[in-house]
């Protein structure tokens, strides 16, 4: 028996909007720790890891570890039917091949049940070891989203270079080139507007902008994004989900031309 009640149901709506275009089908894993997911895109270039900790739910009942295969497009369709202020409860019985989403309006005057078919998914799980990254950039998520969008109108790839001067995002395409430098800036009034760079050695990596733009669909989940870079590792693009956990995207680099 599984029953997860999330008062801030909009979080789950935002999570699905952030990942449904990257991954078609995925297993959601429920355990005492929380509600989690790890899935790769079909080309094995990008991976999404989601954790919503059990403490973040108003009610969290998970009698035994359960893996539920869902089509994320269909799940997103169902969650779109929930209001932004609705409380969302997920329910599943042991051995059932369906999951039920219950939506309650804040005033309790509208209660909806949506039952979705589960599916068997042969998912590949990757072990992701803890790593020391050469550079960690923390910046406003809206700024990062803007940069990825702007650069993708010029080129297909972005070179992210971190030095002690700042973080540089560069692209080149048929019409020309673009370079955007964000300097460390931690003197702003609001912490969510700061750009903070922690660096042990300079790093420069090239990535496909198509994936970066897909990751920025998580922007509504957090005002801050963290980029963790090492010269010999995939980049980690992390959006923290307040009080609950995180959504992390891993992206393999391109070989520099």
């Amino acid at each position: 028996m599984l029953e997860l009640r999330l008062v801030q149901g909009s979080l789950l709506k935002k999570v699905l909007e952030a990942i449904k275009d990257l991954v078609n089908d995925a297993n959601f894993d429920c355990s005492a720790t929380g509600f989690s997911l790890q899935a790769m895109d079909s080309s094995h270039v990008a991976l999404v890891a989601l954790l919503l900790r059990s403490e973040g739910f108003e009610h969290y009942r998970c009698d035994r570890n359960l893996s539920m295969g869902m089509n994320l497009g269909n799940m997103a369709k169902m969650l779109k039917c929930a209001g932004n202020d609705d409380i969302i409860t997920l329910k599943a019985d042991d051995g059932s091949d369906t999951v039920t989403f219950m939506f309650e309006s804040p005033t309790q005057d509208k209660i909806s049940d949506f039952e979705m078919k589960l599916m068997d998914i042969d998912s590949e799980h990757l072990g992701i070891p803890e790593a020391e990254y050469h550079a960690i950039v923390r910046m406003p998520s809206s700024e990062f989203g803007r940069i990825c969008k702007d650069l993708s109108s010029i080129g297909d790839t972005v070179v992210i270079s971190v030095t002690k001067e700042g973080v540089k995002f560069s692209t080149r395409g048929d019409i020309g080139t673009a370079n955007i430098v964000c300097r460390q800036n931690n003197t702003v009034d609001k912490p969510e507007e700061a750009t903070i760079i922690e660096m042990t050695e300079p790093v420069s990596l090239t990535f496909a902008l198509r994936y970066m733009n897909s990751f920025t669909k998580a922007t509504p989940l957090s005002s801050i994004v963290t980029l963790s870079l090492s010269s010999d590792l995939p980049v980690v693009v992390e959006y923290k989900i307040a009080e609950m956990g995180y959504i992390r995207f891993y992206l393999a680099p391109k070989i520099e031309e």
Partner: peptide, 14 residues
């Protein structure tokens, strides 16, 4: 494109 690495070159399947 063919100069794109994959995650399987970095992380092990478990």
């Amino acid at each position: 494109s063919n100069n794109q690495k994959t995650l399987l070159g970095f992380f092990q399947k478990v």
